[in-house]
Design a protein around this nucleic acid. Structure first.
Lengths: 194, 194, 194, 194
DNA sequence: CATGAATGAGTGTTCATTCAT
DNA sequence: GATGAATGAACACTCATTCAT
């Protein structure tokens, strides 16, 4: 299997680093190859083309990213706790890996429409996780029953995403984890006074 | 004055169209020039370089975009109504101009860090509008008094932005305006039952 | 007559300054026009094209340059004195006008073969002056009678030219006029001991 | 080592030919590449940029040029013979390679100030050879003891250079080697009768 | 005469991809 | 499998020249 070959992972790890450090357009294939300690041509033994490196980087990293979130949310019993965990895990993982945060929040968006569609496909399981939490909340009678799920998901994802992007644009200078409870509260209760 | 020269606007309008249709990286200067009905060199009489076209497109369009939102929200008296109007105007304007929506939601994000910073500067007045509405809501005693303004702004902007991006990625196939009241309700009241 | 129109001379003077300051390739027509205080298009009322400006600059400046040398050498009676005067006037005029020195020694040589041929045509009268002095020296029985005139002229001109070029390349930092007598002596007597 | 790679020399040889035939400004990189039988991009594997081709051409050719002159002058015992050999070798080498003569006398001078400075650096060893011969002549008591070396060098170099340039401008139509003894005699004894 | 906005041909350089070894 | 030298298509930008006013 492809993924067991060591160079494959060398290249992926190198790609994350190189893209985070040099930006999407500053990340020539030759630079990634050099950082991975392989020849330029070797890249093409493992990846169809440059775009394929990016998609794979995202796929691999997102796979782990989502897997951890699912694992942790599954340990919780209520939708509210699950949502809190999702927010925390999302933010924690990006807080822990600034390279990855830069790549997901900034660099990977500098791609063309086709690549964007593929990235969206990869993100789908994550969005499903959110949907499931919302559905569960409704079933638990904790969340409003007439919620339009996709819209809620867009609010949740859009909010977290924007929070992280702001932090990255501000050069990750503050502690993002501190904001987790407030984000959670806001999403649950909105901004109105009750 | 620059802006009164007709070619200036011809080029901007052409740029929006060309970028929406071909994507950022598929929009060669020569293609924009052709679409604007001017010579390649003419572009450089009005714009410093290719990036400057983009920044200017965004500046001009965002200027109008924000101006309209401010005008309309100012007609309203309560923070809640203002927020509703902001959401509606944001979505209405992008609904009315799919080209612009594609450019703002997808293509302009395919830019490097420097350009992104510039775009953020241009967006600032809009974010201030949001902040002001939130502050007003707190003063009116309608919104919670201990809200962390930047976070609330990120939720509001992140949600609307994500809603629009989803619509653009789904090729603008559904009527986005229908969702305005629900977005408004969600932001105000969150997802929890009361 | 063309030459009486004031803009004509404005442009020539501006051209010398601009070329000296910006180099041949940094001297765009628009820059010369601006320095001359005229519109770009006006240049083309007085000159056929950019090359024509250069040729004319050289023609005008060289005309004066040579005229002065001829005037002064004519005042002298012996070939030796005439040669000394020629060397002195050549060097004095370029010493007095660093702009002109830069243009003649460096910038005008950055031209194509056609332009070089034209410049050589303009230089011809100067070379004739040298030839005449040599011939006179032979007639006076001061110079060797079997001298090959063109070769002697090439030595005289080549030497003075190289001396000036060196001075320009060293940024005109030393006093070139001091070297005049030595150059004269060298050309007359060579380097051998007698 | 770079210089052993065959394409490196292919490109240099092609560059000399192309520049001699088309002039400096008519020598597009693509034209040189085609003449060398390599792809445009290959040029940039061996040279930093177009200017670097020129500098290298000059460096390589001048290196050989000077080496041969040094070798031959070293075989001679007196300063006078050494000077004769220097003149002869200088002229012989350019006589034997018209392409090179055109490039050194005309095209390489069409360069900007920075490039000119680099070329001067490369020429320095040659000028030192001349200086050494002059010093030796003084020591031998053949040359005048109060000669100002730099000035003598400028006369020697300026004269040879002008002689060659004239020949190139006259399209190399006459036999330059015939003039060697006369140039030598002129430099040694000047133009005056004794 | 004078203007200066408009033109568009021309080119050095990059970099994803290939393929002979 | 692995290499890395070679490829060549693609593109932003400049500037001499024109011409309608």
């Amino acid at each position: 299997m492809k993924n067991n070959r060591p160079k494959y992972h060398q290249i992926i790890e190198a790609a994350v680093r190189v893209i985070a450090e040099n930006g999407y357009h500053g990340s020539q294939v030759s630079k990634i190859a050099k950082a991975a300690g392989v020849a330029d041509g070797t890249i093409y033994l493992y990846f169809k083309n440059k775009e394929d490196i990016l998609v794979t980087v995202f796929k691999e990293k997102m796979g782990q990213f989502i897997k951890k979130i699912v694992e942790e949310t599954n340990k919780k019993n209520s939708a509210s706790e699950k949502l809190l965990t999702l927010i925390e895990m999302h933010i924690r993982q990006l807080s822990d890996n600034h390279y990855l945060a830069i790549v997901t929040q900034l660099e990977l968006r500098q791609s063309n429409y086709q690549l964007r569609l593929q990235i969206n496909m990869i993100l789908k399981p994550y969005l499903t996780v959110i949907d499931d939490i919302v559905k569960e909340g409704i079933k638990e009678n904790l969340f409003q029953e007439n919620l339009k799920i996709p819209l809620v998901r867009q609010m949740i994802f859009g909010t977290i995403d924007e929070v992280v992007t702001n932090w990255v644009m501000k050069e990750c200078k503050y502690d993002l984890l501190e904001e987790v409870p407030q984000v959670h509260a806001l999403l649950l209760d909105g901004i109105s006074k009750r």
